[in-house]
Structures are given as structure tokens and as C-alpha cells.
């Protein structure tokens, strides 16, 4: 079902649930993987994904169609991730590096990571990046989003995103070379 059709059906109380169910089925994987790559742990990603869709449900009525639906959903998911990581830092009075270390430990002990060693190293390299750079890299490298789309999601200029991605790649290469 096209986004336009989903939105039209959502306006009608009789078909609202059906339309939203279609929306969830269409975007659940994109949202989950976007969140999972940021928070690493499956249970956290599961909670946040549900939270994202509850927020989408609550605010879809006020969604302005001047942006695309999936970039709007991505933006909500990104905000949820950043808020989650920020709360984690505050809760444990930990600087960024320690949160990264905690997430790296989860990565090592996770039952739901079956990647090769090089993939594990890449994820560990990503955890050493600032959150915004990590977001940019994930959306560009794994999700194949265009800079224009990432710009719409993060509210950052395309030029700044290109620079951010370039710096992220350099840091990752450096990490992989040294490890």
C-alpha cells in the first residue's frame, strides 16, 4: 500500500486501524534496524521501536505532507535513539566513552549478533564515533539513503553530512587498520 493511501485511510475512523497496521508492516524493519544499530541491544531496540510507532500513531493526524512519510518516521526514530542514549549517560553519570564500552560489551555477549569478525570490528569502530557521525554513517552505508534524505531527517546541510561521513570513514579505516 502506498503512503498516500495509508494516510487517506488513516483519516477515516473505520479504516484507521487497518491503515496503521499496514504502515507498521511496511516500516517496522527499517525502524527496528535503524534503532538497533544505534542502541545495539535487541531488547532496547524492541522497546524503542514500539515507542516510535506509538508516537507515529499519536501524531500521524498532525503529519504535514510537505515531507515524506518515511523520513518523518526516521526522524522520530532518530530522536528516540538520541534521547535513549542521552538518558543512559545521565542515569549512570558515564561519559560517552563508557557508554560506548558498555555497548561494545553487549555486542560481544549478544546472542543476536552473528556477523563475521570484520563486521564486529566495524560495529566496535562505529561505537567510538560521536552519535551524529554514527547516525550519518549508518544511514549512508547500511541504509543507502541519499544525502538529501539524511539532511531532511537530521536537519543538517548536505555539505555538513558529506564532511561528517568522510570523517567517519577515515576514523573507521584507522580503527580497522590498527585492530
Amino acid at each position: 500500500m502506498e503512503d498516500k493511501e495509508i494516510l487517506e485511510k488513516f483519516q477515516n475512523p473505520d479504516s484507521r486501524n487497518l491503515a496503521f497496521n499496514q504502515l507498521v508492516r511496511k516500516y517496522q524493519q527499517k525502524v527496528y534496524w535503524h534503532v538497533r544499530k544505534m542502541v545495539i541491544d535487541h531488547d532496547d531496540a524492541d522497546d524503542l521501536t514500539q515507542e516510535v510507532f506509538v508516537k507515529v500513531w499519536s501524531h500521524l493526524e498532525s503529519f504535514r505532507k510537505d515531507s515524506q512519510l518515511y523520513t518523518w518516521i526516521y526522524r522520530i526514530a532518530t530522536n528516540e535513539c538520541l534521547n535513549f542514549l542521552s538518558a543512559k549517560k545521565k542515569r549512570f553519570f558515564l561519559p560517552l566513552h563508557d557508554v560506548a564500552a558498555e555497548l561494545a560489551e553487549k555486542l560481544d555477549s549478544s546472542d543476536h549478533f552473528t556477523g563475521e569478525e570484520v563486521q564486529l570490528k566495524l560495529q566496535k569502530a562505529l561505537l567510538r564515533l560521536p552519535e551524529k557521525q554514527r547516525l550519518v554513517f549508518n544511514m549512508k552505508y547500511f541504509d543507502d539513503l541519499k544525502y538529501e534524505e539524511i539532511s531532511e531527517i537530521l536537519g543538517t546541510s548536505v555539505g555538513a553530512l558529506k564532511a561528517s561521513y568522510h570523517i567517519a570513514v577515515k576514523k573507521i579505516e584507522e580503527f580497522l587498520k590498527n585492530n
Binding site: H42, H112, F113, G115, L122, F142, V169, I172, L176
Partner: peptide
């Protein structure tokens, strides 16, 4: 380095 890394992230779900 980067070209030798697969684009799959390696995470799985239940």
C-alpha cells in the same frame, strides 16, 4: 578496509 567490510550489519532478531 572499507571495501572489505560487507554491507550487512551482522545483527539478528529472535
Amino acid at each position: 578496509n572499507m571495501n572489505g567490510v560487507p554491507k550487512e550489519h551482522g545483527f539478528t532478531t529472535p
